[in-house]
Design a binder for these strands. Structure first.
Length: 428
RNA sequence: GGAGAGAUGGCAGAGUGGUCGAAUGCACCGGUCUUGAAAACCGGCACGGGUUUAUAGCCCGUCUAGGGUUCAAAUCCCUAUCUCUCCGCCA
């Protein structure tokens, strides 16, 4: 969430900047609520202060053995009046908080202004798409012909948008994840983590999936009167980032760099009809996630580095890609700046998103109260959080299958994966 | 699943109805001393919110969380969560 002080003091500026990402802030309503809040909060606290003072004097009088009856009379209806005000105030604060929690992050100044993905800006391109001397097949055809992708059985077991992988394709899928994890831990300095795949509501609020995007999640255990519900993670960003929730990290331990390989579960609500063929958009997919917790002044530099870490995976796999910076209108809810990495898919003759790397600045850490303490500082301050896919494993498999296909339908195994596949050079 | 014990500041650990936001120790930050360091001594040191130009004052809240009793709750009552010990079960 945004800094509430900033939001109320710079209401107009905030509204303007949010408008660039297509979010309309109800300035008038907020202004009115805020005015009400101020007077109500001040008067409630004044009432509280006077009650505290009277209670204290009762204690002092009793200690001296004086008669407390006259003071007790003074308290009178103060209690009921206070309770009513408190109730009114907390309802108002809840309302304001609900608004604050559903306002997206401010775009960074360096993010290009635009309405939708057509206005994203390419920042670099790597590799040259291979020239094929034969007609390319897409990954569905390749995978099914090799007996490695079984969409039909997955539908029987569960439904659409699930997959069963078998044999060397399943092995390559596993190899890809292993390769990515090893790369990030041994060469990029990340610490590997194994994390829960079910998370509670506090965690989802912390990273921003809730309260607005509950529809995109699979909820396994509903919330009850007392207990929080549990949901399957849509990305390892949720558990990894929330590790810092309600903690104060020592300056010397920064930056925190974490990676995890997990399945991710997304209901893909509202995307019916899009990418229905193949592995591109699944309800369950594997991803190796990168998360960094850094000091504010280094976060933009860290975003460049993190994006580079994800790009390295594609470079080592010799897969052509381009990197685009998202325009304000295409960025996710919590992001201040995002780079998407798009891999070349010959069967679609286009680049498709394979990674999204974002600097959330203090948007998540404010929700999570994830802080650090600098030696020179008196008080702890909010961290900046970053995350990125490094990479989406299923989509990487798609890219390998399509880019490394041979005329006979076999797949050459990329060099860097062979060590993970018992030296295998070719599938099929 | 059964039985019991607990949850207090960065950590350890006092506090069982009234100047308690909380003793004390450790850690940490400053200072004195010292060639430097250590030791010793002196001082400081929780977090959030409101008001405010103010990271100055003043005020409110916070002793796991949520309810309750009371003029007044870290302290009494209820519920939840978590931790520990023992038994059972299990990978």
């Amino acid at each position: 969430m945004l800094d509430p002080k900033f939001l109320r003091n710079e209401l107009e500026v905030t509204a303007e900047r949010l408008a660039t990402r297509g979010f309309i802030l109800d300035v008038e309503r907020l202004g009115k609520l805020e005015q009400k809040r101020k007077s109500l909060q001040v008067s409630t606290e004044e009432l509280q202060a006077s009650r505290n003072a009277i209670s204290k004097s009762i204690g002092q009088a009793k200690a001296k053995g004086e008669d407390v009856a006259p003071i007790m009379a003074k308290v009178g209806t103060l209690g009921t009046e206070l309770d009513a005000k408190k109730l009114e105030l907390s309802a108002l604060l809840d309302e304001l908080n609900a608004i604050a929690m559903s306002v997206p992050n401010l775009p960074d100044e360096s993010a290009p202004i635009g309405a939708d993905e057509s206005e994203n800006v390419e920042v670099r391109r790597w590799g040259t798409p291979r020239e094929f001397s034969f007609e390319v097949k897409d990954h569905v055809e390749l995978g099914e012909n090799l007996g490695g992708l079984d969409f039909k059985s997955a539908v029987k077991l569960t439904g659409t948008r699930f997959i069963i992988m078998k044999g060397q394709i399943a092995r390559m899928h596993r190899a890809l994840a292993q390769f990515m994890l090893d790369l990030h831990t041994t060469e990029h300095g990340y610490t590997e983590a194994y994390v829960p795949l079910l998370v509670n509501e506090d965690s989802l609020l912390g990273t921003g999936q809730l309260p607005k995007f509950g529809e995109d999640l699979f909820h396994t255990k509903p919330a009850t009167e007392e207990g929080q519900g549990l949901s399957l993670i849509p990305t390892a960003e949720v558990p990894l980032t929330n590790m810092a929730r309600d903690t104060i990290i020592d300056e010397d331990d920064l930056p925190v760099m974490l990676t995890a390989h997990t399945p991710c579960f997304r209901s893909e609500a509202g995307s019916y009809g899009r990418d229905t063929r193949g592995l591109i958009r699944q309800h369950q997919f594997d991803k190796v996630e990168l998360v960094q917790l850094v000091k504010p002044e280094t976060s933009m530099q860290a975003l460049e580095e993190l994006t580079g870490h994800a790009e390295t995976v594609l470079q080592k796999l010799q897969l052509p890609y381009r990197t685009v910076v998202l325009c304000t209108g295409d960025m996710g809810f919590g992001a201040s700046k995002t780079f998407d990495i798009e891999v070349w898919l010959p069967a679609q003759n286009t680049f498709r998103e394979i990674s999204s790397c974002s600097n959330m600045q203090d948007f998540q850490s404010r929700r999570m109260q994830a802080r650090f303490k600098a030696k020179s500082a008196k008080k702890p301050s909010l961290l900046h959080t970053l995350n990125g896919s490094g990479l989406a494993v299923g989509r990487t498999l798609v890219a390998v299958l399509e880019n490394y296909q041979n005329e006979d339908g076999s797949i050459t195994v990329p060099e860097v994966l062979r060590g993970y596949m018992g030296g295998l050079e070719k599938i099929g």
